[in-house]
Design a protein around this nucleic acid. Structure first.
Lengths: 180, 180
DNA sequence: GTCTATAATTTGATAGAC
DNA sequence: GTCTATCAAATTATAGAC
């Protein structure tokens, strides 16, 4: 892992713990064993670093997800696969979705960072919409609405589980998910 | 409004914009026309102030809500009333639920503040559970599960609406709410 | 790529006068 | 209740050497 990637990895953890204001160049520098001035070599400003963290988080998430069609073809439900990715994140990392936390702080995010967070939801909503639009299960709601409801309940349940230190809240919430 | 209440009101806005790290004693002092040292007279520490903000937010929310039975007796659906309170907050304040944002930051909250946020969800979940347990509509899920799913989708949809500056996302999400 | 050094600002908090 | 004055620490960022 390059130094730049190390910095991004440490920053991601800090942001998922307490948002955009919860990391500093000095802190990151210390954790990877360099000085804060050197962090500015890799990222001119904090905004640049924050945007890169959000971008890589989104890319990694979508990459882990794969394509809805591939999941379907393997005989699995894409919606369940999506929810399971959130669940794994909660159980393993014990941390909030990075874009779920940053999204709530949208008002104070620098432009580049807010743009990347918007992009996360654009991509996840499109993915879910595609999954629902190819669903074989009958539904009164259209695919777009189902996509919104699904990502909403996952983000909300994750947050409530974290503050209550009780993962069963999340598990209980996803039991009601409408399948694809 | 007392000076103490003015400080709480200003702090609430700042927190709903950007979380616990998004307000300072100096900032609050300036907005109400005193000096930062005077804020320490009203609140010894930032933790005390933060906890009081969360407590009053919760009290005001529950107060605006009223009792599920009173809503039912008036011929209205308590779940819809609950969702409408969230919707009003989004449309009028154009801000995140204070406890939704703070909950996502749970890892970095001082103990008193995190305690108040947990209390918000304890109270809202109990309220929703009561509303669902007296429901006349048949459901496969129990009242507790329905309560979790309802508050989750509301918090999540609120967050996504805010970062996308598109309230129709929230409106779309609540259309799928299971009524009480 | 990383360093030292530093500027300019902001932060939470306290002592003590009025 | 509010003030002045102040502290110790942390923050983002830059200049320039190596």
């Amino acid at each position: 892992m390059t130094r730049k990637q190390e910095l991004i990895a440490v920053a991601q953890i800090k942001v998922r713990e307490g948002g955009y204001n919860n990391f500093s160049f000095r802190e990151l520098a210390k954790e990877v064993g360099i000085k804060s001035a050197s962090v500015h070599y890799h990222f001119p400003t904090k905004e640049d670093l924050g945007a890169e963290v959000a971008k890589q988080y989104t890319d990694a998430f979508m990459n882990a997800l794969g394509e809805p069609k591939a999941i379907s073809d393997a005989g699995n439900d894409p919606i369940i696969a999506f929810a399971t990715l959130f669940k794994s994140s909660l159980h393993q990392d014990k941390q909030m979705c990075l874009c779920g936390l940053l999204g709530a702080e949208a008002d104070i995010l620098p432009d580049l960072v807010r743009g990347e967070v918007k992009h996360f939801f654009k991509r996840t909503l499109l993915w879910l919409e595609q999954a629902y639009s190819h669903s074989k299960q009958p539904n009164t709601l259209d695919a777009k609405q189902l996509a919104i409801q699904t990502i909403s309940v996952l983000e909300g349940a994750m947050m409530i589980s974290i503050v209550n230190e009780d993962n069963s809240i999340f598990d209980s919430a996803i039991e009601g998910l409408i399948k694809g």
